[in-house]
Structures are given as C-alpha cells and as structure tokens.
Write a protein that binds this DNA or RNA. Structure first.
Lengths: 202, 202
DNA sequence: ACAGATAAAGAACAACGTTCTATAGGGAGC
DNA sequence: GCTCCCTATAGAACGTTGTTCTTTATCTGT
C-alpha cells in the first residue's frame, strides 16, 4: 500500500517469468492432475499475472504444448541413457527406464499422450515425440544387427515394443492393474515380447 | 410465441430425457472429441434444457461416468463375442475385436481410460472395467487349460495382453503409429506376445 | 377434478480461458 | 544522468463453461 492508499503494483523481472510459469505448471500438474492446470492457478503458483501465460506461451494450450515437449525430451533421454555393452540388454534397460520415467511423472506422462488426441500440435512438438520413437528404433536396429533379435523392419518392431510399454505403464499409472508385482509383470511382458521377437530366453 | 407475446415453454416427456442426453453426448463425443462435451452442447443436441444433465446424471461428471460404463460394457461384449471352438483362437479373435471396438469408437475408447486418472469413479463403474478384464482373464485361463499357453497366473498373463492391446490401440487412435500396415502390426505384436507366453508359432 | 411432489425449462452465479486497458521496466539517444 | 518510447507486465473486463437457483409444467395419488 502506498502512502496515498493506492495498491502498489509489483512486477516480476521478465527473464524469470517463463521459467516460473513452466515450473509452476509442472508442479501443479503432478500435485493436482489436469484439473490443477488453470491459467490463474499456475499464475498464482508462479507469483505472476495470468496474462504472463499468454505473453510467454501464447495460450494455455501453448503452455501444455511446452509440457508435452519437455515430457518427450525427458522420455527420449530415459530410453537413451543406458550404456550396457550388450545391445539387447541396452534396449531392455531403456525399456525399464521408460517405465521408471512414467511412474516418476505420472501426470506428465498421461498428459503427453492424452493431448495428442486433443491439442493441435506444432510440427516441432510432434518431432519431439518422433525423436523418442527414433531412439527406440535405433536401439532395436542395433540389437537386430547384433543378431539378438530376428531381422525385420525395425520401425515395425519398435512400434510393437512401444505399444506394449505404453499400454503397461498407462494402465499402471491409472491404477488399472490387477497383477500382484507390477514391476515383475512389466519385465515379464517385455521379456515375453522380446522372446517372441527373437531374443534368447532370459 | 403465445398470442400475448410471451414465449411458450415446451417440455420434453421425462421418459425420453436420459436417453436423448446420453445419445447426444455419445454423438458429440465422437464428432468433436472431449471439447464437444459441454453441458449446453449436449442439451442442445438432445433438445432439452441443460438442467436435464443434472437431474438425470447428477453432474457433467455423472454423464461422463455413464459413457465410461457404456464403453466398458461394450468392450466386454467385444472380447466375449468370438465363438471359435479353439480356446487360443477364441482369445486371439477377442483381442482383434478389442482393436475393432477401439477403432470404431476412438473418442469413447480414449475417454474410458483418460477418465480413470481424472474422475472420481463409483465402485459400480470400476466394476464394469473389472468385468471386461475378467472376461479376458477367463479366455486366457481356458487357453492355458487347453495347453495352448504356458501355465502361469492367468491374471498376470491377461494383464500383459491387455497392456499390449491397450498400448497399441491407444497409439493408433492417437495417430502416433509409424508402422505401415497397422492391422498387421497389431496382429504381429499380439502373435509375438502370445508366442512368448507359450503359444505355438502362428 | 384437485393438490402436492417432482422434474423440466429458464435465469443467475462463480470460475474458467482469453482479450483489453493501465502501468512499469528496459533500452536507446542525447 | 535524464528523457522518451517501446514492450511486456499487472489488473480488469468479457464470453463461455459447469453448476445452482427460481419458475413452471408434468405426473401421481386421492
């Protein structure tokens, strides 16, 4: 309050706004799910005005799109991070890391795939999803060349593996999972599929 | 308009309102996706007042829950409908019917799983999801008893199959599918998994 | 036929995403 | 350092949404 009784406007340094909003959105999303992602809620969390979402991300959808890209970029890193010398083991470890990412960020993972049917996504954003798929395909291809998986179109095989992983973690984070040991169930499904694709029994 | 210039209220027979709203919601959902599912939009489509959603379904969420139950009930029928004499073939046909259902009702399928992470669902509604899973488990169990799948906990195995199916169709209806022949890709993944679970090579 | 309960229609309210208006930060020029 | 102007920030207003409240018509029981 100023000496004249008028409210004093505070103003955030413009270099911090984008990050504050993005971090606030990420936090609110995991804490409250998609219902927590309101423009006002994010702005309050970030300590800025709601208009900041529009100047920085263009719209609420733009903010969601930024979360989408961040999610796929992080997912790609997860698939890519294992460094086992054996190609099949490296692929498998990447698949385990996939689940770990999803379970560590359940709401973000859910948003990434849910928004594909909802949001009008830019080519650039879709590219981030494609990159994570390409990383998986590359790992599959390497295991094929090493003779550890039956030779086939690596894209087709990667699609199958991705489908299985996505289905498993989606049901798991939604708590629609009736198996007792969820981690073992995921590993077992993965091994059954890899075996069906030509891997030696694990 | 009455002779006195006052609008004449029309009133729908109460036995029709619930069905009109539900059918309107189902149509709008498939035509426009979740964004089309507004209370006013559904009411207009059904030719009733928005308040009808509340008296019949309790809330917008209640309407969505009715769609959820309808979806899972229909999905269960799809899994259950094949009558092939051979248990493994019957299971496999049910899995193909699963995909057919999802592709025929992409938005409904998406809503069914998306809402699991969003909606506070009644025990009754969750039971409809469990019933469709139980049907799949039963089919798995029968194939095991016939010696066509390796003996294991049928729940665990059904969970794996469901995960793979769910992942595959989810990515397919979201158009995140890089394989050339999607139907063949699904069948191939299914067969690889069933083979890994003990089925003779198809 | 009449009365009362209930649910249907229509209006109003609070919260939402978005756009508009007022204000302050930051950079350029002197 | 000071002034001016542009831009982005905060705050307010607007249209749409889900929901609740009020009015009105249907339905049931006597």
């Amino acid at each position: 309050m100023s000496a004249k009784g008028k409210a004093v406007r505070t103003r955030t340094s413009s270099t911090e706004i984008g990050d504050s909003i993005f971090d606030g959105a990420l936090d609110l999303l995991e804490e409250q799910g998609p219902a927590g992602l309101t423009v006002r809620g994010v702005a309050i969390r970030a300590g800025v005005a709601p208009m900041g979402v529009y100047s920085r991300f263009g719209s609420k959808d733009g903010l969601i799109e930024a979360l989408f890209v961040h999610g796929f970029t992080t997912l790609q890193d997860a698939i890519d991070s294992p460094t086992e010398p054996d190609p099949l083991n490296r692929l498998r470890a990447g698949c385990l890391a996939y689940r770990h990412f999803a379970l560590s960020h359940p709401q973000l993972y859910h948003l990434m795939f849910a928004q594909m049917m909802v949001l009008q996504l830019s080519e650039e954003s879709l590219e981030s999803a494609r990159h994570s798929f390409a990383t998986l395909t590359e790992r599959v291809s390497t295991a094929m060349h090493a003779g550890e998986l039956r030779s086939a179109d690596p894209v087709e095989v990667a699609q199958q593996i991705w489908s299985a992983m996505h289905g498993a973690v989606s049901l798991e984070i939604a708590d629609v999972h009736f198996a007792i040991d969820r981690e073992a169930s995921y590993a077992s499904m993965l091994d059954a599929l890899l075996h069906g694709l030509g891997a030696a029994t694990r």
